[in-house]
Design a protein around this nucleic acid. Structure first.
Length: 282
DNA sequence: ACCCAGGCGGGCG
DNA sequence: CGCCCGCATGGG
């Protein structure tokens, strides 16, 4: 199925969202798989913003799901207009035009960002890879791929095994979260709740705090007002907007919400990508 | 060797 | 509340 959308696949893939962790670039195509579906996304060039992509899906072609995943309703030009408040954000927008926020499965997003805490992107990818080995094998175009394991499969993995996989001290966080999502909280019941409601519900989970819940709200529930603050974003705001002054998280939040409002999440994503790509030597 | 990574829970004042 | 500390692990 062909889908009209302005998107820079590579930037979107590399910018540290859920999609970054549960998909792979294979032969210049993006392969993304959740627990019940697999997408094979082909763009003419993953290096440049394109205007359309071609998608094959397992088990069936479902354009609406792909549109939701890639947030095709977002009018990037309008969003740029509203967050282009200064020369720094302007540079980020110009550099990474076509970078989109993505909206992934909230359960998988929760798992990914519990693993992400106080960790680095390469290690997170490695751990997610190992989790994939528990997933079902499916075929698409006569090639085999793994789906992400569902909660019932993850429930069978012991804490010791999670430690071996590399979760370290986060093993009990994930172990408990899997059970919490199975028996205490239907994550899909939060889909159309407010940002604040979602944050409160997520922060009741052992191992999920302010930052991880913001990532889940943003990348798993599509709440674009969320502004996750990790070490990169903290340094970036301090260095680029406050002349290297040390700031409290609460102060940075205030700054971000008042400056970028309901698209703070987009501003965050561009700033995060800019910070990592330039290592802040701008 | 040392420092850092998409932070969190717990304990203390 | 806010602040401070320890935490597993691997790569630069």
């Amino acid at each position: 199925m062909r889908l009209d959308i302005d998107i820079a696949i590579k930037e979107t893939y590399e910018s540290g969202q859920t999609l970054s962790f549960i998909s792979k670039i294979i032969n210049n195509n993006l392969v993304y798989s959740e627990d019940k579906l697999l997408l094979y996304i082909n763009a003419e060039s993953i290096d440049n913003p394109v205007h359309s992509i071609y998608v094959k899906a397992y088990p069936k072609h479902d354009a609406s799901y792909v549109k939701q995943l890639l947030r095709s309703k977002d009018n990037l030009n309008k969003i740029y207009e509203s967050i282009d408040t200064d020369s720094i954000m302007h540079k980020a927008i110009m550099s990474y035009k076509g970078l989109r926020l993505t909206k992934s499965d909230p359960v998988i997003t929760t798992i990914v960002f519990i693993i992400s805490q106080f960790n680095n992107i390469n290690r997170i990818r490695g751990i997610i890879d190992k989790l994939y080995s528990y997933g079902k094998v499916v075929k698409l175009n006569s090639k085999s791929y793994r789906l992400f394991p569902d909660l019932y499969t993850l429930e069978k993995i012991s804490i010791e095994r999670l430690r071996e996989i590399g979760l370290g001290y986060r093993a009990p966080y994930l172990y408990n979260a899997v059970r919490y999502m199975l028996y205490n909280l239907d994550m899909y019941s939060l889909e159309h709740k407010s940002y604040e409601y979602i944050k409160d519900a997520l922060m009741d989970i052992y191992g999920i705090g302010d930052k991880v819940s913001d990532c889940i709200a943003l990348f798993g529930y599509g709440k674009t007002e969320a502004f996750p603050i990790d070490t990169w974003i903290k340094r970036a705001i301090e260095r680029l907007y406050f002349n290297n002054e040390r700031l409290k998280i609460s102060k940075i939040k205030e700054f971000a919400y008042s400056r970028w409002g309901r698209y703070a999440g987009y501003a965050q994503q561009y700033l995060y990508h800019l910070s990592r790509m330039t290592k802040l030597s701008i």
